[in-house]
């Protein structure tokens, strides 16, 4: 912990200025993004993002394709360099609290023919606990098995990963993130390409995380299910359109501002929203 911040991150000595007096205290916020701009090859794709994630809540990150949702998450966990701005997890820079942050990337970036089985993949989430140069002992394999059970994949522990279906692969990678026992999870489209059973399983896991007092930020594309699964929403389209509790922020006007012209879909959602609000 004695080493200084890596080059490029602003020095962490100054206290965080509170962005427009929001209720959440930035030092306790699972994720606090301040004034963040991200650019690929000098072309900014995220502008001036100011955002405090609420603790102990499930937040949906919603926006059209190419709106920068993946970029937001990757920039938060230092996988993409930030042009400016500052990101804090629980008041500290990411590299100091990595173990408290679980990141589940968008699917399909690994070599599926790699000689590992589902259990091996989950155990990778425990490597930091195991430490340098030590082998994966039985104790850690049992631990990994526990997380496979939690996502309902215990029967597939010994399968080579290419022999799993897309949804099953997704669950294995979710188990790998869970095994880390982080306090905040960033998940990039965990619901894409999964059947209803897997979707339900993931939702149950998210709810369990919330009950355990953990926060999760989940990129989600299905507007219909946003109010059902999440408490908060972050509407994004290169800039932050709106953020807050679903009941206040997930409105047809805000969605229109986020998605632009695709009205047919949005009116449908808006209709659903009014129904939901009428019910509650």
């Amino acid at each position: 912990m004695t080493d200084g911040p890596p080059p490029g991150t602003p020095s962490p000595d100054l206290p965080e200025p509170l962005p427009d007096g929001t209720a959440t205290h930035p030092s306790s916020a699972p994720l606090a993004i301040h004034d963040m701009t991200v650019a690929y090859h000098r072309r900014p794709v995220l502008w001036d993002i100011d955002y405090d994630a609420p603790p102990g809540q499930l937040t949906a990150i919603v926006g059209p394709n190419g709106s920068g949702k993946t970029t937001l998450i990757k920039a938060a966990v230092d996988l993409v360099p930030r042009a400016s701005g500052d990101v804090r997890f629980f008041g500290s820079a990411y590299h100091k609290v990595r173990h408290r942050v679980g990141y589940v990337p968008q699917r399909g970036s690994v070599d599926w023919d790699f000689p590992v089985n589902a259990l091996d993949v989950v155990a990778m989430g425990l490597y930091k606990q195991i430490g340098w140069l030590r082998p994966v002992t039985r104790r850690y394999r049992d631990k990994a098995m526990h997380y496979l059970e939690r996502v309902g994949m215990a029967d597939y522990a010994k399968r080579q990963i290419s022999q799993l279906s897309g949804g099953q692969q997704q669950r294995v990678f979710l188990a790998r993130a869970l095994s880390q026992q982080a306090d905040v999870y960033l998940m990039d489209e965990p619901f894409v390409g999964v059947d209803a059973a897997t979707e339900r399983a993931i939702v149950i896991i998210l709810q369990e995380l919330r009950e355990a007092g953990k926060a999760a930020l989940v990129v989600h594309h299905d507007l219909q299910t946003v109010p059902e699964y999440f408490d908060h929403v972050l509407l994004l389209n290169m800039r932050l359109v709106a953020t807050g509790p679903i009941t206040e922020v997930f409105t047809p006007e805000n969605l229109r501002a986020t998605y632009g012209g695709k009205l047919a879909l949005l009116d449908q959602v808006g209709h659903r929203m009014t129904l939901n609000q009428g019910r509650s």
């Binding site: 966990v77 996988l79 990595r98 990337p105 993949v121 490597y127 340098w132 140069l133 082998p135």
Partner: peptide, 22 residues
Amino acid sequence: TALFKEFGLLCFDEEFGRSHGW
């Protein structure tokens, strides 16, 4: 042999390894 676990992680999922601070 000593770095077996670390090399395996590097070959399988470099980005994940990086995000975990390896």
